[in-house]
Design a binder for these strands. Sequence first.
RNA 1: GACCCCAUAGCUCAGUUGGAUAGAGCAACUGCCUUCUAAGCAGUAGGUCGUUGGUUCGAGUCCAACUGGGGUCGCCA
Length: 589
Amino acid sequence: MNIEQVLSAQISEIVTSLYGEKLPEVRLEKTNKDFEGDFTYVVFPLLRVSRKNPQDTANEIGEKLKAVGHPVVAYNVVKGFLNLSISNSVWDDLLQTQWNNPEYGNQPAIQEKVMVEYSSPNTNKPLHLGHVRNNLLGFSIAEIMKANGYEVIKANLINDRGIHICKSMLAWQRFGNGETPDSSGLKGDKLVGKYYVAFDKAYKAEVEAMVAAGMGKEDAENKAPILLETQEMLRRWEAGDEVVLSLWRTMNGWVYKGFEHTYHRLGVDFDKYYYESNTYTLGKDIIVEGLGKGVFYRKEDQSVWIDLTAEGLDHKLVLRKDGTSVYITQDIGTADQKYSEYHTNRSIYVVGNEQDYHFKVLFLIMQKLGRAYAQGMYHLSYGMVDLPSGKMKSREGTVVDADDLLDEMHETAKAKTIELGKTEGMQETDLQQLYERLGLAALKFFILKVDPRKRMLFNPQESIDFQGDTGPFVLYTYARIRSVLKQAPEGWEVDGISHELHNTERENLELLYRYPEVIRQACRDYNPADIAQYSLDLAKAFNRVYNELSLLKETDPVRKANRLKIAHFTANTLRHACSLLGIAVVERM
RNA sequence: GACCCCAUAGCUCAGUUGGAUAGAGCAACUGCCUUCUAAGCAGUAGGUCGUUGGUUCGAGUCCAACUGGGGUCGCCA
C-alpha cells in the first residue's frame, strides 16, 4: 500500500466519523510548489455534508490526520485546500530500500500477452521521419508494456506487394541498366526509392504529353501506357509469373537489407515479421463466415459490404465484386491469424491518424464477428510529422530521410562534444559510440516527448537542440552522477538514522517515489511522453540538489551517504526511464 | 456536404479523473566555474489558454455554436 492509499483511507475514515457520510473516493493531489506540503486534499466537495466553511472543514480534518501520527506530521490550510506534510521517514524508507534497485519501477509480471505492431513499411521507398516517429513510438510502447508486466510480441507487417512496388520494378527494368546496390554503392532501399521517383517522373511526362495531344486529364492519368504496364505487371505477379516474382524478390531483398541497417541503427527490433504477400489473401473465409452470420451482406454485383450506419459510420466494402480482397479484408484475416498464433490479450496497432476510420471499422467488424479478442484491440494513432512547408511527400522529394537525419544528428553531437572538450583520453571507438548515442538521444527525445496524438513540426533549418529539455540533458545528468559516484570513496554507503532533508533532496525523492505510478500511467495512456516529461523533471530535480549541496564534500557521513544514495537512485531511474524510450545512456560526456 | 482530430508565450511543447497566482525549453537579457561535469543552476521579461455562450463553489480542462488548421469519406495500402 503506498502513501496515497494510506492517506486516502485515513481521510475517508475521518470524514465518515465527522460527517457520517461515506466518500466514494478520496482524491489527493501533489501540493502546488508555492505551498508547504506534499499532498493536498481539496475539501470543497465536502462542504455540503460538513455544513461548515472551507477553512474550518479543512482544519478539522487536518487536526484529526495529524492526531493519527503517521504519515502526516503537519498541515496547513489555504482556502479550501488542505496541504499535508508527510513524515521524512516515508522518504527515508523509500531511499534505503530502493536506492540500489536497478529494477525500480518495473511492475510485477501479469499473465497477459500483447502484440505491438509497428513500423509496417512499404518496400518501394526508404524510411523517412514519419516512419521514425512510428518506430520510436512502437518500440517505446512495447518497452513500457514490458515494464508493466506484459509479455510483449513486437510485430512488423511489411507491405511488400502491390502496385507501388511494381512501379519501382518497372522503372528499374526500363531505366536501371542492371544497376544494383553493389554496382552503385547505393543502400538498397535508396536504390529502389530512386526508381519509384523515376517512375513518377516518367508517368507525369506521359500524362502531360497525352493531355497536350488533346486527352482529358483524368483519362490520361488512367491510360498512361507506363501505368497500364505496371498494372499488367501486378496481374502477372498475382498469376505467379516467375520473371516478375524473381525481380520482385531481388528488389525487395535490397530493400530489406537497407531497412535492417536503419532499424539496427535506430535500435528497434521485431519478434515477428508478417508479409502482405502472404497475408493478402487472408480474410476471405471470414467474409464467408460473416455472410453466414448476417454481419455482412452481398450486393447484386456480388461485392460484399457491412452496414455500420447504426454505429454512426457508413457502409463499408469488405470484398470486391471480382472476389478479390481490399485492405480491410487482409486486416480482418491478419487479426485472426495473429490471435491464433499468439493468443494475445491485447493487440496494439501503431499507425498514423489518417487511418483512424479504418481501425474504427476494423475493430467494430471483429466485434460483430464475435471475436472476444476485439476488446483488446487498440489503435495507437499518432499525428504526422510536418515540415514548415507542410506535409512530407515521398514522390515529391520533400521528405526528411531517416538515414540522412541520423547522420546529421551524429555529426552535430560530435561537433558539440568537441566544442566542449571534455572527452580527453577517450578511445576513438568510445567516442564514436558517444556521438551516436548522443545524436540518437536528441532525436528520440525530441520525438517522444510530445503527445503521440498530436501532429508535430520538424524544421530542418533548425537543428534539434542539445540543451534544455532534451535527451542530451538527461544523459548529461546521468553522466554527471556517474562521475561523482566514481569518485566516491570506498565504504561511503553507511547507514544511519534519518535526518532533516533539504528541500531539493525532498523534491528529488518525491519524484523518485512517483516513478512507478508514471510507468503505469504511460501504459494506461499508451504515451511515452509521460516517461520523457518525467525524466526531465527528475533530471532537473537532481541538478538542483547538485548545485545547492555538496555530495562528496559533505562532512556528515550519514548525510553524505544519503545524498549519494539519492544520486545513485536517480541515475538508476534515469537509465530505466531512458531504456523505456529506447535511449542508451553514456557514462561520460 | 458528412464525420474525426487539433488550436496554450515570438518558436517548439507540458498542463493528471475540473482545483490555488496557467508551466518548461528555445530565442532575448542578468548573475554563478582556481571546489564533486556550466550539455548545468539561479533570475528578468514574455499569456484575453482561437471566439462567443453555457454547466458550477471553481473551466486551459466538460457541453454547444462559430472561426482557423489537418485528416477521412465503397473497390490505394
